[in-house]
Design a binder for these strands. Sequence first.
DNA 1: TTGCAACTGGGTCACCCGACCCAGTTGTCT
DNA 2: AGACAACTGGGTCGGGTGACCCAGTTGCAA
Lengths: 198, 198
Amino acid sequence: MTRIPAGERRAALIEAALRVISRNGIAQATTRAIVAEAGMSLASFHYAFDSRDELIDELIVTVIEHARHAVMPDDLVDGTLVEMLEAGIVRYFDHLRADPEHEQAMLELTQYALRSPERHPMARAQYARYVELAEQSLVVAAERSGSEWTVPVAQAARVLVAFTDGLTLTWLVDRDDDASLAVAHAAAVALSRMAEPR
Amino acid sequence: MTRIPAGERRAALIEAALRVISRNGIAQATTRAIVAEAGMSLASFHYAFDSRDELIDELIVTVIEHARHAVMPDDLVDGTLVEMLEAGIVRYFDHLRADPEHEQAMLELTQYALRSPERHPMARAQYARYVELAEQSLVVAAERSGSEWTVPVAQAARVLVAFTDGLTLTWLVDRDDDASLAVAHAAAVALSRMAEPR
DNA sequence: TTGCAACTGGGTCACCCGACCCAGTTGTCT
DNA sequence: AGACAACTGGGTCGGGTGACCCAGTTGCAA
């Protein structure tokens, strides 16, 4: 028997749950499937959490905190704004292709949260976080390309999140790389028109 | 006892299932919930369908066939391409606002189909249908505004579907009308750049 | 009007689920 | 070394679910 502090055990279960959801969907993420994935017994589950709902809630909070898959243009070579934007989106796209199941899990989690009034705010928080990250990227991109946003950055960020979401959902369905690159390009063009040279 | 031909009975159950899914999500669409919604007994369900899976499959096929919520620019006043595109997207957005649960149900159905290899093709078909509808709209819009697509229309249509999807998902989460109108505008601008005056 | 097939009411069944429980066992602190 | 709390194995329990079944009932064709 390995002794694990309660906190770590909760974290381990949350990670296991995320793996199960990524692999098989949230509907299959039963307490039994989760503890099997984590190599624990049911008793351990209920020792660490009061209920499955509690774990799912905490899982959502965790993924929001860890959201960082960013469309971050750091370490990207400088260029025009459109170029940087497109490069950022393509970078996110690469991330999506590398781990499609994770993004699918995020999507399911959102849909799941949307279904109950108590959890709806969590979905909002998740997207607020996405917008926040997008905003940071946009600020950096404008800065580095010598541009200036002509609309509130938050608004441009919100558009970027919508476009990114659309790219994700459609690609998950048809897995058409070329089409998604076209979407990335179109999105970058549209966003760049919300800024002008400084 | 009212006698109903088997075909109609199946149709009635499918409609009931769609209502249940729209209202409570696919997870709640149990055979019992569906027959209750349709005002039938469980026996009737299994008289009409071999299994719940069979009904869900048929439901997906049905919604694909009936997809028509189009971004259709019919009966829209003519104008520039951008204007017509934006008007079309806004029109879809109005439709979304009028019946958000329906679009949420569509989203869930897609996610559901994505989760099993046998059903993945159904999700593809659903999106192929969306692209087809979008394509028709784009052709009409270009025609009426005296423009010409400089990329294959199918590609532009695929981009439109992605943007529309993103608009849907983000709006369902934050219900921010203004932000979504900004998305619609940006999307229209991006698409219009794939065409030129004829 | 009769007969039959379409249909349904009201069950049963096996299975899975979340929650819970208790008698141990074993690290760890003193 | 002793004791205590953290932890777990191996259950139970009630409730929900999909599938199924059979004895009726009734619309309708002849």
